[in-house]
Amino acid sequence: MRLEGDDTPLTDACCHVLGMPHLCPSGLSENWLWKELGHRHWGLIAKAFGRAEAGFGPAGEPPVYAAFRRISLQGGDLGGVRENDALDVRSTVTYLSETRVVSRHVAACRDRLVADVEMSSVFVRRQAEGVNRSIARVRIEGRGHTMPAFGAMPAQPSGTGHVLSGHVTGVDERDLGTLVTEPCPHLDFNGAGLLYFSSFVAAVDRAEWHFLGKRSGLFTTRERRALFHANVELGDRLAVRMLASGDGAECRHRALLSTVDGRLLAEIATCRTKL
């Protein structure tokens, strides 16, 4: 992806001196990292389209947002950073079309990889004002350029099968149970009124803590993959069903997130290793 009339690749880089907002007891806060990279993803889109305001689309029409479809983290060494470390983050838009955007973010500390992240989003708009279940995918015509850097994009699944099965967790899964939570608008929803993608990941972490207890605190994320299908309304409850595998040296699980009436919202597969 390059800016129109400019031969410079569309990239962004920054450095964070890590303090309490960036950290958790096991090192870098993954929840903070997702929020930061989500913001950077949005900023690169706005830069590509020459817009800084919230939402895209014609004036007078409901805004168009970039909703995350897939996210992945690999090569994770979140437990390898401490307070006052300098975290360097370099972000690049690797694909841009009228419907989809993919960005890649590499976070490093002292020349050591902390996380290699890829994020894919689609443009969406509510078809009924204030109704999150009415969100539909849309195109932004006549803007941007197409430059796939890592080959063709993977095909989007047509159904709601367990498409992440085997990517992280393996085949010997055991059902740990289902945790039902109610997302809080002050904590879990973003400025567009949508349950933020990082809140889905946070719900899985809460379920892990619920089912594994103190053992969960011994691990740090090595790999995480998520596929998002739908969003929820304010007041909806979230059911997190957790299927786990692995041995004492690793914590592997796949979570199926749905509404309590069974509508699949997201699938998140996680691999953690001991600190």
Rank of each mutant, 00 (worst) to 15 (best):
76 G>I: 05
38 G>S: 10
37 L>S: 05
50 G>W: 13
50 G>E: 10
54 A>R: 06
62 P>F: 06
47 K>Q: 15
31 N>Y: 09
65 Y>I: 13
75 G>Q: 14
62 P>I: 00
45 I>K: 01
29 S>V: 02
48 A>H: 14
47 K>N: 10
44 L>W: 12
48 A>K: 05
56 F>E: 04
33 L>T: 10
67 A>P: 00
39 H>R: 14
40 R>K: 12
58 P>E: 11
77 D>T: 04
57 G>L: 05
62 P>Q: 06
56 F>D: 01
29 S>H: 03
68 F>C: 02
36 E>D: 15
73 L>E: 02
63 P>T: 08
37 L>M: 13
71 I>E: 05
46 A>T: 04
47 K>I: 08
33 L>K: 11
36 E>K: 14
33 L>M: 15
29 S>P: 00
69 R>A: 12
69 R>V: 11
41 H>S: 10
36 E>V: 09
46 A>H: 11
56 F>G: 05
53 E>C: 07
72 S>H: 05
55 G>Y: 11
46 A>K: 15
52 A>Q: 13
66 A>L: 09
63 P>Y: 10
55 G>F: 06
43 G>M: 12
69 R>P: 01
40 R>M: 12
37 L>R: 00
58 P>R: 06
62 P>W: 03
36 E>C: 12
34 W>R: 01
50 G>V: 10
59 A>R: 12
68 F>P: 01
58 P>W: 07
57 G>W: 02
35 K>P: 01
74 Q>P: 00
44 L>H: 10
76 G>P: 03
30 E>Q: 09
27 G>F: 02
45 I>R: 00
44 L>D: 05
70 R>E: 11
30 E>T: 13
29 S>W: 02
77 D>E: 09
54 A>M: 02
53 E>D: 11
39 H>F: 14
30 E>L: 14
47 K>G: 02
72 S>G: 10
71 I>M: 14
34 W>V: 01
66 A>M: 10
49 F>N: 15
36 E>A: 15
55 G>L: 07
78 L>Q: 07
39 H>V: 11
77 D>C: 02
45 I>W: 06
57 G>S: 03
54 A>P: 00
39 H>G: 10
53 E>N: 08
73 L>R: 04
70 R>S: 03
37 L>D: 08
68 F>A: 03
62 P>D: 05
73 L>K: 02
33 L>F: 12
52 A>P: 01
61 E>F: 01
53 E>L: 05
53 E>M: 01
66 A>S: 15
67 A>F: 12
31 N>W: 09
74 Q>A: 04
54 A>V: 03
39 H>M: 14
33 L>A: 09
78 L>D: 05
43 G>W: 14
57 G>E: 01
38 G>L: 04
59 A>D: 12
65 Y>H: 14
58 P>S: 08
70 R>I: 02
59 A>I: 04
31 N>K: 08
37 L>G: 01
76 G>Q: 06
74 Q>C: 03
55 G>T: 08
78 L>Y: 06
48 A>D: 11
70 R>T: 06
30 E>P: 02
28 L>P: 02
73 L>H: 05
27 G>A: 04
38 G>C: 05
31 N>F: 07
36 E>H: 13
41 H>P: 09
43 G>R: 15
75 G>W: 11
61 E>R: 08
39 H>T: 14
35 K>N: 07
